[in-house]
Amino acid sequence: MSTVPTGTAAGTVRAPTVLAGRGLSKRFGDLQVLTEVDFSVGAGEAVGIVGPNGAGKTTLLNVLSGSQRPSAGRIEFNDQDITGLRPELRCRRGIGRAFQVPKPFTGMTVLENVLVGASYGAGLGRQAAYRRCVEVLETCGLAGLANRRADSLGLLHRKRLELARSLATAPQVLLLDEIGGGLTDAEADELVATIKLVSEQGTSIVWIEHIVHVLIQVVDRLVCMDAGRVIADGPPGTVLSDAVVVDAYLGRAGS
């Protein structure tokens, strides 16, 4: 869609913001999960989110995708306020979502799973939806398994299906939640290659991942969260050497 400077270091011109959360807070009863989080992703930009367990990463993704409402704050997509928009309508506008624990439609085939995204999320007509499915299945290495029921897939293929389904919705922004979790290095590398391809073709990416060395192969910018707040935001190299980040996350994780 638009060419984007890779590595939006301070000083370079940022691409226009596609999706932004402003002052996002979320509380469950007494538990404050997000506290005035400001977050944005530009057109074609790939942003990684890291942070210890319970930092609020998944909640942030839920609030951005619409599966949870923020207690306070605003969400903007292409400069329009979408804070009150239901998840299915956000998806149709171009916000794709892959869940941390894959949620395949187990009673349907792989092809039918992907077709739901192409027909509804992307709003394509029958033939166009078919073409999109074939493309996405090939991109994600699932064409050979297309007619298998989704409940017969192992973890790697479930993860690929989760990615394929959200890609089929033709997202402008793709929200990924630990898509590499639980995979071997070789398996994770395959997924990274696919996501990198998607990113290079102009789709904005917001990606939560614990495996930092995987993440930095793709992302232009890294956001570190801790206890519901953003504690660092910048080029991966800068963020990873930040003393606060090391203390909050990397030090404890020991990687």
């Binding site: 599966s67 998840p87 299915e88 949620k103 739901v116 509804y120 389904r165 959200s166």
Partner: peptide, 12 residues
């Protein structure tokens, strides 16, 4: 199979 996942793929 999964109402939340269906919604996240654009199904009303």
């Amino acid at each position: 199979d999964d109402e939340d996942a269906a919604a996240s793929l654009g199904v009303r």
